[in-house]
């Protein structure tokens, strides 16, 4: 599916979505409440079949967080980027680990480094840091005077 066709399809699926302009891949923004149902559709809709989640990451925008999902389909070879805006103080979103198994690790990574909690994740623990670590290293306001060397 081309980006245009994908965009029309997406407008049908998610009427409130905002699209970003000037990106190579169709990029849309949504809210966490609508995301889970939307993701399920992406995975199962026979015209879409986004079966390959190749990147999942989170960005700290100081005022809020976004979780960025890069979906691709191994059948149709189209790509979609979904950005979900999360609250600064309580960043939480539904897990997609049962739809894409790879999300299990990627979500743990995002939890560990960004502090985003994925509700419904089977094993929400820190992945890289020790269990008693305080703070989330990839956040912009993270300070660690011992391990971070400022040049």
């Amino acid at each position: 599916m081309t980006n245009e066709a994908l965009k029309i399809k997406m407008e049908g699926l998610l009427p409130g979505a905002a699209f970003e302009e000037g990106t190579a891949w169709l990029t849309l923004q949504t809210v966490p409440e609508e995301f889970k149902a939307f993701a399920t559709q992406l995975r199962s809709d026979p015209d879409l079949l986004f079966d390959y989640l190749f990147c999942l990451t989170a960005v700290d925008w100081k005022t809020h967080f976004t979780v960025v999902y890069h979906f691709s389909s191994t059948v149709y070879r189209h790509t979609l980027v979904v950005k979900v805006k999360l609250d600064k103080n309580d960043p939480a979103i539904d897990t997609v680990s049962e739809l894409w198994r790879t999300a299990e690790f990627h979500e743990r990574e995002a939890y560990d480094l960004m502090g985003i909690s994925f509700t419904g994740h089977p094993d929400m623990r820190r992945l890289f840091m020790t269990a008693d670590h305080v703070g989330y290293p990839l956040r912009k306001d993270y300070e660690d005077p011992v391990n971070m060397i400022k040049l």
Partner: peptide, 11 residues
């Protein structure tokens, strides 16, 4: 501003 490496070994 933010950089993410999607590394193959991780998946």
């Amino acid at each position: 501003y933010r950089i993410k490496f999607r590394s193959p070994g991780f998946s």
